[in-house]
Amino acid sequence: MKRRIITTQVALALGGLMLAGAAAAQDENKLYLFNWTEYMDPDIIQAFEDQYDVEVVQSYYNSLPEMAAKLNAGGVSQYDVIFPSNYYVPRLIQSGLVQKLDKSKLPNLDNVMDEFADPSYDPGAEYSVPYQWGTSGIVYDTNTFPDAPKSWSLLFDPEVNPDQPFALMGDGQVSMGAACAYLGKGYDCTNPDDWKAAAKLLLDTKHRDTFSGFTDGTPALQQIQRGVVRAAVSYNGDYLQQKQENPDAYEHIAFMIPDEGTEMWVDTMMIPAEAPHPNLAHEFINFILDAKIGAQLSNYIYYASPNKAAQPDLDEVLTQPPVLPSEADRGHLEFTPSLQGDELQMFQQLWTEVQSR
């Protein structure tokens, strides 16, 4: 009886190990992505699944703070590939939430444009690979503002826009950067005194009767399309996508890059430090870097490709403004600064004050 009990216990233990092993083996056939919403062509996912005989599981976030919070809450071991914007890359590296790339597993890395191959936010591109890039700018109703200046004054100067509703972006660094640029301090300002002046401008702007609120990207475009606001801040690719889908509604809606300067952003692909399937993650990143796949991705989501090999296959609309800024506008673009430590804490305090007062 005792021997039988022992045998049964061993059998149960072995059975458990076999089940665990089977689950682990099954899990090896899955890739977990954590991405912005509506930022991937489903056909690309299907093509990857077919080629590698795996299942891709996608989860989504709506903001970078949300992404970082989930990584810190255990997501670092739940996701294989994440898609943070450039100014979050150094934070993720410094906090140990991401791992270095094994470039020997990324033969398509040579397809990356030179300007993205050694970025300031990730020297040597040791941790990140560019996914898409674009700009932030002002979208506005040309019927309401037929002579709109190419300037942030359309939002910040009550004499230029005395009575028309408008919105600013809910991303604190974009709105603070815009205020800094308008004040002549540069979009990429980091001087504490400049930040304080920008925060005061934002507070003054926020208390104007025509201020509609802090509204991000696509929702801002929807508001301007419905006439809720007449000017707002959005992204060039979002604007183009909405315009392509609703040409009549966007006949009198334009996108501008203010001459005082604005954001050039790069969304990247990174592998969390404890990713369950790092080898498959490298396969996926290399897949996205393929010339044909890179072009297919941009043609689907209407943003600029950092893939030089993809350029011949891009739709014509992606080779001209607003997706590709003019040479003059390129001179007005800056990366959003990556803030850490005391600098980040001070910024967050100022932004919290702007939002709460």
Rank of each mutant, 00 (worst) to 15 (best):
V98W: 00
A73R: 15
D163P: 06
K70C: 02
D80V: 08
M169C: 05
T190K: 12
I82N: 14
W152V: 00
E115A: 04
F166W: 08
P165M: 02
V89A: 03
Y79N: 02
P90T: 12
V89I: 13
V76P: 01
P84Q: 02
S151F: 05
L155F: 09
F156S: 02
D80R: 01
Y121S: 02
D157L: 05
K150L: 10
Q78M: 15
S85Q: 10
D157G: 00
L64Y: 00
K100R: 11
V112A: 08
I93H: 07
S104K: 10
Y61N: 01
D171E: 15
P84I: 06
M169F: 13
K103P: 00
Y127S: 00
M169P: 00
P162S: 04
S120P: 00
T144N: 09
N108S: 01
L92R: 01
G186R: 09
N143Y: 08
E66M: 12
M67N: 07
D171W: 06
W195F: 15
P162D: 13
P90N: 07
D141G: 04
D147A: 05
Q164L: 06
K70A: 10
Y60I: 07
F156W: 10
V160M: 02
Y79F: 15
M113S: 07
P162A: 01
G177M: 07
N161V: 08
P149F: 12
P149Y: 07
